[in-house]
Design a protein around this nucleic acid. Structure first.
Lengths: 253, 253
DNA sequence: CGCAGCCTTGAAAAACTTCAAACGGTGTGG
DNA sequence: CCACACCGTTTGAAGTTTTTCAAGGCTGCG
């Protein structure tokens, strides 16, 4: 696989702490096998057993849970560097369905391989733990939005969250390859209502939209509109100089 | 602190894998200091820095996020054995507020101490990771309910989830010390509507309620009503015989 | 006894869904 | 190259769910 793609994954962890070469190699080891997936293809169905995990190396994907009555909730839109499928790790069967939004590249690995990584690189295990908590906090914000905010503020938050996660070299324009149907499945709204809300936000001047391109005109105003604080990570720590039992704390404070 | 209370915490991990004495001791080490908290008291406010973590040893507590406009979302009702506050670990400031529902006992510890535990007991780190993913799956189910299910099915799911987590020696009766206001804050409903829905479920014969005692009359019917599958954990694994780099996989399959 | 917190009920308003239909782009087969 | 079908977006109108506002009753506690 291309080294540059893998580096995206590693960079994600580097936001939590800088990695030692051994740690970076351990991640590379998990990415041995890669798969190319076509847009809309199901990467892993809920119920699959045993549940695998996946690094998303390129493209957009999504995680969803289906209901017996045909509805589905999209829980997360995944960007390159994300670990996908981890919530199923403790369970006998996969909890969530993973689907490619655009064409994408993934690297599947087993939970056993990840468990071994925890043994071999305990500090990397800690970083995986922190990443999991970060995901949990994102879900908590999303649940808060679903429960407490109306459709307008909920959509505004989604745009802010995606904006924060995208490398936006291109100013505050974000290209979001999700249909309004899919956005509805993320927010718990009908596509019809999503459309009305999108146009409302546009009309109000909070965003400017053309097709699937969204421009966040005034970030501060949008954030104030939503009313949830931005989450800032604790400062990353340097990698330990060697692999011996580090006398320094992992996260100086 | 009482050994029996701590054992509750350890038992929670034992659902994922049986613990070695060293691992159990590591958890005990985290529980060195304990605090008694009065009902309704705030244990830790969002924004607190640095964010601590807590073992809940006794009583009910809850985790919530507040909004600038006064609303709040309750994200989880905590029972003895739960780790609380972990979602804030990667962040500079605490993301969630933790409040005692009933009088309770907690054991606070720092994220640095937990990071050290990952170093000293890597397999225990893996179990913490699995527990975090389990929490994540629970949030995903809750978000699915909030987005896709109506108020009735959403409340039914909450009752099923609490029922599954409670040690119910007393048949399918559960005593839930949450006010209808608080249940509303969990589900994203007004207390008025919660009340109507509770009485609807009672009238339909899906539950029988007296005060804060809820009897789940017919579990199978309730589950079918909700339409989300029950989540079953992968079988726990035995503790490794010693602490040497285990040649066996951590989770035989 | 009186207060405070919680539960309960009713009626009107708001938010969101459902149903229905039309428009525009895009790819495919004739 | 055109016609057609399909998918996603857009708009309108009616219906359902949930909220808001208001008020009364119950219980436990000082």
């Amino acid at each position: 696989m291309s080294a540059t793609l893998l580096e995206i994954s590693i960079r994600r962890f580097a936001a939590l702490a800088s990695l030692t070469p051994a740690e970076a190699n351990a991640i590379r080891g998990l990415c041995e096998r890669t798969l190319a997936i076509a847009a809309r293809e199901v990467i892993r169905d809920e119920g699959a057993t045993p549940p695998l995990l996946y690094f998303l190396l390129d493209g957009w994907a999504m995680t969803s849970i289906g209901l017996s009555d045909g509805g589905r909730q999209i829980l997360k839109a995944h960007l390159p560097g994300d670990v996908m499928g981890a919530p199923s790790a403790p369970f006998a069967e996969a909890v969530e369905t993973i689907t490619a939004v655009t064409a994408c590249t993934v690297a599947p690995f087993t939970r056993e391989a990840l468990a071994q990584t925890f043994q071999a690189q305990p500090r990397l295990g800690w970083l995986f733990f922190l990443a999991a908590q970060q995901e949990r906090a994102a879900l908590m914000d999303r649940l808060t939005a679903a429960g407490q905010l109306g459709a307008h503020r909920n959509l505004a938050l989604l745009l802010l969250q995606l904006h924060a996660r995208l490398d936006r070299a291109s100013g505050d324009d974000v290209e979001i390859p999700l249909t309004q149907q899919q956005i509805g499945d993320m927010l718990g709204l009908t596509p019809v209502h999503v459309n009305r809300v999108v146009r409302d936000l546009d009309r109000e001047g909070l965003i400017r939209r053309a097709g699937r391109r969204y421009e966040l005109v005034d970030l501060a105003r949008l954030r104030a509109f939503v009313g949830l604080p931005a989450r800032t990570l604790a400062p990353p720590v340097q990698a330990a100089a060697d692999d011996s039992p580090a006398p320094t704390t992992l996260r100086a404070r």
